[in-house]
Design a protein around this nucleic acid. Structure first.
Lengths: 215, 215
DNA sequence: GTCTATACCTCGATAGAC
DNA sequence: GTCTATCGAGGTATAGAC
C-alpha cells in the first residue's frame, strides 16, 4: 500500500519524485504569482506542469501545501542579498550594492517578487509565522549594523528599518507594478534608468556630510 | 415590469437607491481590498453591507461591475494629490508636499491603496484602459513640469517618471505591506518615523547643488 | 505512479413569491 | 425592492482501475 510522498516526511525520494515536485513548484510559482492564491487553480498548475490534477495531489496534500512550500522555500533565496551585507565592509558600498542587487532581482525574478507581494498585501495569512521567525531577526541584526555605521559617522543618520522599507519598496516596485510601469514608460530601457535613479536617491541619502554648495 | 437600476442609465434614482449603492461600494472596498478580486465573494460583500446577495445584484449587474465601478470612482480621489502639484509653485515645496500628502493617504486610506495594488499586481486586467486614458496623460504632463524645473536649476537633475515611481512605492508601501511593517516595527509610531525618513530621502535627492562638506 | 471518473462544495447569478 | 430557494459552473479533493 503505497504512501503518498506528501506524507512520508524523512523517507528517501526517487529521482522522478524529486523532478516532479520541482516541476510542480515551478508551475505553481508561475500561476500563483500572476493570479494570487485564490485566483490560481490546480487545473492551471497541472497544465503548466504537464501533469494531471490528481497527480499533483499525489505529491502535495493540497493547494495550500503547495503555496506554503513555495513561500518558505523561496524566502531564503529572496533574502540572500540582505544576508550578504558585510558588517566589516565599507558601509556606503555595502548598502548601494544591496540596492543594485535588489533591483536586479526585480528584473530577473519578478515572479518571486509578485508571489510575496500578493501574500503580504492580503495580510500574509500563510507567512506571518515565518516573517516573525526568519525575517524579523535578520532585520533586527541588519538594523543594528546600520545603526553602528551611523554612530561611527560612516553614514548620514538614518532610521535603519525605514531605510530598508524604502529600498524594498523602490526596487520591488518595478516587478510588482510592472503593468503600470509599462503603461507609463513605454518601450524604453526601464532597468538602466531605474538603476541610475536609485543610485542617486540612496547615495545622496546615505552620504555623510552633504551640504548646500555656496554660490 | 420593474427595470433594474443597473440597467437604467440616465434615470433619476431615489434616495434609498443612492444610499444602498453607497453601502454596497463601501462594503466592496473593504472586501476587495483585503482579499483581492478573486478572493472576495458576494456573500462577504452582502454581509458587510447588511443586504442580501440577490439585493446586491439588483443594484449591480454582477461582481465585476461592482469592482470596475469602485476602481474608476476611487481613482480620481486617489490622483488628487498629483493634480494638486502647482507648476507655478516652488518646486521643492510642491514635491515635498506631494510626498507628505501621499504618505498621509497611505495612513488614512489604506484600503484604497491595497485595492489598486491588488489590481495592478495582477496585471491591471480591469484597469489598463483607464490607466492609459487617465493616468498616463496626467503623468506625462507632470513629468514635463518637473523636467522644466530641473532645466531651470530649481531641482537637482532627476528622471521625473522614476521619481514618481519612488514616491508612490515608498509611501504606499506603508499601506500595502502593512502586515510586514507591523511585524518588523512593533507598536511604535510608524507614520512619524516614515515622514521624517521620506523627508530626508527626497529632499536630499531633489535639492540642487549638494556637495560633500570639506573637512 | 498515473490516469478517468466523480463526489462534494463554494460561488455567481436567476426565478419567483411577497 | 427585498426576500427564499435554487440552478449551474467551476473548483478542490478522492475513489479506484491500471
Amino acid at each position: 500500500m503505497p504512501q503518498s510522498p506528501a506524507a512520508q516526511a524523512g523517507r528517501k525520494s526517487s529521482r522522478i519524485q524529486v523532478r516532479n515536485r520541482k516541476r510542480i513548484l515551478e508551475a505553481a510559482l508561475e500561476v500563483f504569482s500572476t493570479h494570487g492564491y485564490r485566483g490560481a487553480t490546480l487545473d492551471q498548475i497541472a497544465a503548466e506542469a504537464g501533469l494531471s490534477k490528481p497527480n499533483i495531489l499525489y505529491y502535495f496534500e493540497g493547494k495550500e501545501e503547495i503555496h506554503v512550500t513555495l513561500l518558505n522555500q523561496l524566502l531564503d533565496a529572496w533574502l540572500a542579498p540582505l544576508r550578504a551585507i558585510d558588517p566589516q565592509g565599507e558601509p556606503l558600498d555595502e548598502l548601494m550594492g544591496y540596492v543594485h542587487r535588489k533591483l536586479e532581482m526585480s528584473r530577473d525574478l519578478p515572479r518571486e517578487s509578485r508571489l510575496f507581494a500578493n501574500e503580504i498585501l492580503q495580510g500574509a495569512p500563510r507567512m506571518v509565522p515565518h516573517l516573525d521567525s526568519v525575517l524579523k531577526p535578520l532585520v533586527d541584526q541588519t538594523a543594528a549594523v546600520i545603526e553602528g555605521w551611523c554612530v561611527q559617522g560612516k553614514l548620514a543618520p538614518v532610521d535603519p528599518r525605514h531605510l530598508l522599507f524604502s529600498i524594498w519598496a523602490t526596487t520591488q516596485h518595478y516587478a510588482d507594478f510592472e503593468a503600470q510601469v509599462g503603461v507609463l514608460m513605454g518601450e524604453v530601457d526601464v532597468h538602466t534608468g531605474a538603476a541610475a535613479h536609485l543610485e542617486a536617491l540612496f547615495r545622496r541619502l546615505l552620504t555623510p556630510g552633504l551640504i548646500v554648495e555656496n554660490s
